[in-house]
Amino acid sequence: MPSSSPRERFLAVFPALSAELLDYLRSEGMPAPAIEWYERSLAHNTPGGKLNRGLSVVDTVDIILCTDAQGKRTRELSEEEYRDAAVLGWCVELLQAYFLVADDMMDASVTRRGQPCWYRMPGVGNIAINDAFMLEAAIYHLLKTHFRTRPYYGLLLELFHDVTFQTELGQLIDLITAPEDDVDLSRFSLQKHHLIVVYKTAFYSFYLPVALAMRMAGLDDESLYKRALDILLPLGEYFQVQDDYLDCYGAPEVIGKIGTDIQDNKCSWNINVALAHATSEQRAVLDAHYGQRSAESEERVKAVFRAENIDVEKRFKEYEKESHARIEKMIMDMPENVGAKDDGSNGLKREVFRSFLEKVYKRTK
């Protein structure tokens, strides 16, 4: 019997997957303290977020397999289909957990998802490096256990390996462009920001869930993956620009955190827009105060952001309107059920992309 919400039903799958991983450790003769440690790591780092990436796998499989070309529901996912989609979704969430454990250490972050970062938990420290590796390794154990006999198994492995490498490239560009202890705004540019957000966020947060669902649904026309990539990467970039904007302009009680991008020397969209339009005097203020851990310096930077010739808030609203129109046109320009089989089902449907855009457009958190 499905749970009362898509999130609850998805969450209900995780304990069994965690148990599979712990059983593997037992089968390898690992001692009880190691098994207990891994259980705590899995529970602390994997199921506590919004789960948007994992749920997107399930939603996309559902749209492809259970709706017709006009978007009308034709059936429900079988229990086996749902289970397969949820396993792939949890593999994406494990990838996210792996990235975040490592990222928090690199950024010396304090909290994540309302609790201490894993490396800051009592007794963890640098052991979190190995824990991050074990979160990643869990992906490939689950893929082998659940999909080794499927014809698309190798393609799943390829997707995870490729997207992991792409995300790590984005992280590298971010780390060498904006180290917290070495502020140098001459390294920043909108082009650099574009590279960071596409590689660090868009591939694994937007393309990966959809591509996994397409493989599971039997879509084998490679041109469909190019079409999906062409829509999802701009959509992922738009999402991250929103994130940057909300860090500075979102209400903390709504977004659930106090923005720190200015004090943390982040190569955000906001600072790059300001740099692109600043006068020499404004640039001097930004050089002196960006990346400084001071409320006064942060306010000086925000004052430049508000200046009439820069007006980051106005420029974001223009960017958001343009981005929405451009992405919507890309979606409408594709056939309604491209790549469909002879029976008219199982094509790449517009609703896959519409659902993403609707969730993202004008979000406030």
Results as ranks from 00 to 15, higher is better:
Glu222Val: 04
Glu222Phe: 02
Leu224Tyr: 12
Lys226Tyr: 04
Ile231Pro: 04
Gly236Thr: 07
Gly236Tyr: 05
Asp244Pro: 00
Asp244Ser: 03
Asp247Arg: 07
Cys248Pro: 07
Tyr249Gly: 07
Glu253Trp: 12
Glu253Asn: 09
Lys257Cys: 11
Lys257Thr: 11
Ile258Phe: 11
Ile258Met: 08
Gly259Lys: 02
Ile262Leu: 11
Ile262Ala: 07
Asp264Leu: 06
Asn265Ile: 06
Cys267Asp: 10
Trp269Leu: 04
Ile271Ser: 05
Asn272Tyr: 08
Val273Lys: 11
Ala274Phe: 04
Leu275Gln: 02
His277Cys: 14
Ala278Glu: 02
Thr279Val: 03
Glu281His: 09
Gln282Leu: 03
Gln282Val: 03
Arg283Pro: 06
Ala284His: 12
Val285Glu: 02
Asp287Asn: 13
His289Tyr: 04
Arg293Cys: 12
Arg293Ile: 10
Ala295Gly: 14
Glu298Asp: 15
Glu298Tyr: 12
Ala303Cys: 13
Arg306Ser: 05
Ala307Tyr: 11
Asn309Lys: 00
Glu313Gly: 04
Lys314Gly: 10
Lys314Asp: 13
Lys314Met: 11
Phe316Tyr: 15
Lys321Thr: 11
Glu322Cys: 11
Arg326Glu: 10
Ile327Tyr: 12
Lys329Leu: 14
Met332Trp: 10
Pro335Ala: 06
Pro335His: 08
Glu336Met: 07
Val338Tyr: 03
Val338Asn: 00
Ala340Gln: 02
Asp342Trp: 03
Gly344Trp: 08
